[in-house]
Amino acid sequence: MNNNGSKILVAYFSWSGNTKAVAEEIHKQVGGDIVEIVPETPYSETYSVTVAKAKAEQASNARPAISTKIADFDKYDTIYLGYPNWWGSMPMPVATFIDTYKMSGKKVAPFFTHGGGGVQRCMSDLEARAAGAKFTDYLCLSGSSAKKSQGEISSWVKKTQN
């Protein structure tokens, strides 16, 4: 719980560990609960295999099953939701998460990591998929700097708590 009494959830999807590092730093700063969005069928550790699977999932608008279960999602007021930019948008397990756990009426603080593509459609696709949520400004970090961005994360976190 942060200082305004909001119940906070930090939810993230991470393949390489960069988004996980950002999520853990956010959690350290805001408290609340943290959960990883985990696909039931893991992605390969081989980059090219993961690229092929993820691109096919995006092309077919797939909703891969996730093993992530949140018992009482309704109790959360604020969701810090993070994921890597995969080919301009969200990894499809994140779409499954959003479809499963409705964001309407919640404050959503989005954070993204990328390998050079920046934010692209990550924010606009999230806004379209999570209709009814109240969005803060997003945080977008290069994956290569994700593990050493505590100051930038802290500045962003402060803005999300207004």
Results as ranks from 00 to 15, higher is better:
112 F>P: 09
84 P>G: 03
80 Y>L: 08
107 K>M: 05
14 S>N: 07
51 V>S: 05
82 G>Y: 05
19 T>G: 04
16 S>G: 05
13 F>G: 06
133 A>E: 11
91 P>L: 01
112 F>C: 15
53 K>S: 13
139 L>R: 06
143 G>K: 07
157 V>E: 00
137 D>T: 14
126 L>V: 08
3 N>S: 15
27 H>L: 03
62 A>P: 04
129 R>D: 02
86 W>E: 01
41 T>D: 15
59 A>Y: 11
72 D>F: 10
150 Q>I: 12
7 K>F: 14
45 E>I: 15
133 A>F: 07
86 W>K: 03
32 G>M: 02
87 W>C: 02
29 Q>F: 03
96 T>I: 06
133 A>M: 05
99 D>I: 07
89 S>N: 11
105 G>N: 07
105 G>E: 00
30 V>N: 03
134 K>Y: 10
29 Q>G: 03
119 V>R: 15
4 N>E: 15
136 T>K: 00
2 N>Q: 14
85 N>M: 05
42 P>R: 02
77 D>R: 04
21 A>V: 12
69 K>C: 13
126 L>K: 02
88 G>N: 04
111 F>H: 04
150 Q>T: 14
14 S>D: 06
29 Q>C: 01
140 C>P: 08
29 Q>T: 00
96 T>A: 03
49 V>S: 11
91 P>C: 04
109 A>F: 10
40 E>M: 10
13 F>D: 06
90 M>Q: 13
64 P>I: 05
50 T>P: 09
16 S>R: 09
68 T>C: 02
80 Y>N: 01
134 K>E: 13
66 I>Q: 01
152 E>I: 04
153 I>S: 03
63 R>Q: 13
88 G>F: 07
74 D>W: 09
9 L>S: 12
82 G>R: 01
60 S>W: 12
49 V>L: 13
73 F>M: 01
